[in-house]
Amino acid sequence: MSEQQGLPPVRGPLVYRQSIWTRLTHWTWAICLFFLLLSGLQIFNAHPALYIGQQSGFEFENAVLEIGAINTPQGPRGRTTIFGQQFDTTGVLGMSGSAEQPTFTGFPGAVTIPSYRDLATGRVVHFFFGWIFVAALFVWFLASFINGHLRRDIVPKGADLAGLPRDALDHARLRLHHGRRYSPLQKLSYFTVFFILFPLIILTGLTMSPGMDAAWPWLLDVFGGRQTARTIHFVVMVLLVLFFIVHIIMVLLAGPLNELRSMITGWYRTSPGTPGEQGDRS
């Protein structure tokens, strides 16, 4: 019998990885993005189509996405058109619910806030959580700049870019490392979210506001019109949803208890052999 049998597994040190500001804003964003997504789909259902340019209407052929329903010999069917390509999306998009009592909306009520048609309430919910989201982002940027989190963990450096192919291969093989700092792939992902996707979704949201257009008319020029801004806003929302799905999958694969402890208490269990430093727990 091996002398090692029955011994507890070797564990790496606990390190203080997430500050209180990172944890508070992380959970604030999670709540905000949930309500922003579902209320945003309620707003989208008021006109379930996306265009490129300043205008939209019957006289223009600038739609890149249209969700609706059509009559067929077999009865009404949901139809989604993407860049001219038509897809039958009955039961999911355009037409949902039972055959006896179908609902004709872009997205079904199960994924909108409110679940019934109410554009006014959807806009109130969307704007309320939108401004909380912006405030949390401002707090995070300020705190992360002061405590060095931005420089240390978010902005990729030359060594991170050099190590990106190896880190991407390790993730593809599910060889996940629990280090003190973020891996190159994590840094690049978070940098993209914080410096590209978040600013884009905020600025395009402001571009769709007539009041903001009056105050900042340059927004319309930057994004090529209100309709183009709406399309970019929708695309960025889809990218953030995809990021969230991948994020949850990686949390489950990396060890959900350790990852959750990091975002609740700040303490993170690293892999064995990770160098310790002052403030770590064994």
Rank of each mutant, 00 (worst) to 15 (best):
T121N: 06
L174A: 11
R117S: 05
L161N: 04
F127G: 03
F133R: 07
K187I: 00
G148K: 12
R181M: 12
A143R: 08
H178Q: 02
G122R: 01
H178K: 14
R181V: 08
W131M: 10
T112P: 06
L137S: 15
P165Y: 08
A143V: 04
G179Q: 02
V139Y: 06
W131Q: 03
F138N: 13
G106V: 07
L185I: 14
G122E: 00
Q101K: 15
T121A: 10
F128H: 11
V155C: 03
P102M: 06
G130E: 06
V111C: 05
D167V: 01
D118Y: 03
A172P: 02
F129D: 01
A159T: 10
A120G: 09
V125A: 00
A168M: 13
N147Y: 12
S115K: 06
L169M: 11
G179R: 01
P184Y: 00
A159G: 09
K187C: 00
S189A: 09
L137K: 10
S144Q: 10
I113G: 00
A143F: 03
G163A: 03
F145H: 11
I154D: 01
L137A: 15
Y182V: 01
F129T: 03
T121M: 07
G158I: 14
G97F: 05
V124W: 14
W140F: 15
R151H: 08
V125N: 06
F128N: 10
H126R: 03
S96N: 13
V111A: 02
R173F: 04
H178S: 08
A136H: 05
L174K: 12
L150K: 05
L164V: 02
H149M: 10
